[in-house]
């Protein structure tokens, strides 16, 4: 499993974080730490691109919820792009598929 790597790029609609590798108990704090340094403007949309995310456990899910809380606190929006099938299955069980806006890829998420 690839160690977590997060790349950040800014678009006109807001920042896009690409989550690469495993988002799990050991690595999830990286995303949560990164969020605290991320400035969001009201009305912007934070996009988490999960196309290259290989694994996500409950700590990873918690980090996604922390990202949502961070966006909400800034009066910004959040969307998940390209959620892997297994993670989508878990998000559906716990009801988060209706809490996060889900898109097939980050471009679609930015345009929506």
């Amino acid at each position: 499993m690839t160690p977590l790597k997060i790349t950040t790029r800014d678009t006109t609609t807001g920042p896009v974080l690409e989550i690469i590798g495993a988002l799990d108990y050991p690595s999830a704090p990286e995303l949560r730490d990164l969020l605290t340094t991320l400035t969001l403007q009201p009305g912007q949309r934070l996009i988490l691109d999960l196309a290259s995310m290989e694994f996500c456990d409950s700590s990873g899910i918690t980090a996604l919820i922390a990202a949502r809380n961070h966006a909400q606190a800034a009066k910004a929006d959040i969307a998940l792009a390209a959620v892997p099938a297994n993670t989508l299955r878990i998000l559906t069980i716990v009801g988060l598929d209706r809490v996060f806006a889900l898109y097939p890829d980050s471009d679609t998420a930015a345009r929506a």
């Binding site: 949560r32 969020l35 605290t36 918690t62 922390a66 809380n69 961070h70 606190a73």
Partner: peptide, 10 residues
């Protein structure tokens, strides 16, 4: 537990 350290359960 709201904010940066969300805690929840099923």
């Amino acid at each position: 537990y709201s904010g940066g350290d969300p805690r929840y359960c099923t």
